[in-house]
């Protein structure tokens, strides 16, 4: 299958014209990269990707960019990858992620497609908009959370969720001030997670200068071994989360329109003193329960 066909198939998935096999065969190793805006995710993706590309590994890269209200978007992450564009063994695709969760909803399907087509490594980069980018962890094998020094608030926020998803932490731009502090904070965070069979490594990198990349690759590979060894167990929990996300997504989509109408009616009712907030909530919930 050539890249033209793969590309066309992806478009069909994007346009809801096609559904592909939605279970993985786990032949490929899927690496996810997430973290706040401006930490240098794309440069890091490039460095990791270049390593695998140079080694002749068949590599797929999925880049997520945010999309705007009217459906238009700039998919600009590719700029940093263009050098890889001349490799025969690399396929890069940009997606506009309208959905929350930091990755386009169809990312999972695209991973499956690429895996089925014999890609050995698949790297997926999230939008990097905020703290809610947890979805990526459900669809990848190795989830890398990238941070940089001086992100005090973000680290606080990490405590409330995103640290759950990290298999590897990266402190990029490690040559700027406060790198040690960030490192220490992360170590505390990792220790708080208690005893697990996988000890989350924290890697310092300066992606733009290719510093720390080899160590990072080493950790990625170590995690891959761990992942493959514990596949049955991990698979279950990933699948659970993934289903949780996708089902909720579908339900939400179904009820969203109706919900808007019901809320409007409730607002009118409350304003006209025909109902109060609690009453209205119960009424709406009842309705939805029956109708969906």
């Amino acid at each position: 299958m050539n890249s033209r066909e793969i590309a066309k198939t992806i478009s069909k998935i994007e346009n809801n014209e096609l559904k592909v096999n939605s279970t993985r065969n786990y032949n490929a190793h899927v690496i996810g990269i997430t973290g706040p805006l401006g930490v240098g995710k794309s440069t890091l993706v490039f460095q990791i990707a270049k390593h695998y590309a140079d080694a002749g590994i068949k590599l797929g890269i999925i880049l997520n960019d945010p999309s705007s209200e009217n459906g238009g978007s700039f998919l600009g992450d590719r700029i940093r990858m263009q050098k890889l564009c001349e490799y025969d063994n690399v396929f890069i695709r940009s997606l506009s992620a309208k959905d929350s969760g930091g990755v386009a909803k169809i990312s999972g399907e695209i991973i499956n497609l690429l895996e089925e087509k014999g890609f050995e490594k698949i790297i997926i980069e999230s939008v990097g908009a905020g703290q809610s980018e947890i979805e990526i962890a459900n669809i990848v094998d190795t989830c890398i959370v990238v941070l940089m020094p001086g992100l005090g608030d973000e680290i606080q926020a990490l405590k409330s969720g995103i640290n759950e998803i990290a298999d590897i932490f990266v402190v990029n731009k490690a040559d700027i001030n406060q790198a040690e502090r960030t490192l220490r904070e992360l170590e505390m965070l990792v220790n708080m997670r208690g005893k697990t069979s996988w000890k989350i490594p924290i890697v310092k990198t300066i992606a733009i200068k290719h510093k720390g990349i080899n160590e990072l690759i080493e950790k990625i590979e170590l995690h891959n071994d761990y992942f493959k060894k514990n596949l049955t167990q991990i698979k279950k929990s990933k699948l659970r989360n993934e289903l949780n996300y996708l089902i909720k997504y579908e339900i939400n989509k179904k009820i969203d329109k109706k919900l808007n109408k019901l809320i409007e009616t409730s607002v009118q009712d409350i304003i006209n003193n025909n109902s109060d907030v609690n009453n209205a909530i119960n009424k709406v919930v009842d309705k939805i329960k029956f109708e969906s």
């Binding site: 440069t43 700039f74 600009g76 700029i79 940093r80 733009i208 200068k209």
Partner: peptide, 10 residues
């Protein structure tokens, strides 16, 4: 000196 890696922002 290496080459500059572009920061393109749209």
């Amino acid at each position: 000196f290496t080459e500059y890696k572009v920061v393109e922002i749209l």
